[in-house]
Design a protein around this nucleic acid. Structure first.
Lengths: 72, 72
DNA sequence: AATAATAGTGCCGTAAAATGCACTTTGCAC
DNA sequence: GTGCAAAGTGCATTTTACGGCACTATTATT
């Protein structure tokens, strides 16, 4: 997933769950400013920050082997 | 995936592909020091850094819905 | 159109990530 | 145990994420 896809995923998920940025900020412990920055595509969050956000949204950060990749 | 799992995944993948930290650093453009720090569990990489590493290893960062999560 | 709620941005201080360099430690051959 | 390669660590610097605050912009509701 590219950066923009990750953003879109988080954003959409948040909206589906009907949580505002403020709400997610409160629940996740991530600063509102940081959240806004990320969702508006102007951030490069640390893994920890991303995990905090994902966690509250019932998601998790995953490392997936790309399909088409010669597996060794 | 927790932090330690992500680290383990990257590390193992790197070893399977028989790439050294130095090699991965060169290929990914991530600093060697940063790589070492991450693999030894003492870092909190930015999403961009993680993506660079994953990319070279034929992997990608993914956001997955946790199973057991009420999908609304 | 006025209001209210939600989202985006500028400014800015603080904390931490990214990185290089040099050194130590570890692991594995021979 | 010597030697070499790979991995880990301490130190210092530069860059940048984090986060608060205040303000603007957008969107929805009445």
């Amino acid at each position: 997933m590219h950066f923009s896809e990750l953003i879109k995923t988080i954003k959409e998920r948040r909206e589906v769950l009907q949580v505002t940025q403020q709400g997610l900020a409160d629940l996740s412990g991530v600063g509102l400013r940081t959240l806004k920055q990320f969702e508006s595509g102007k951030g490069n969050p640390t893994l920890l920050t991303l995990q905090k956000m994902a966690d509250v949204l019932g998601m998790e950060v995953y490392l997936k082997i790309k399909n088409g990749t010669p597996n060794k």
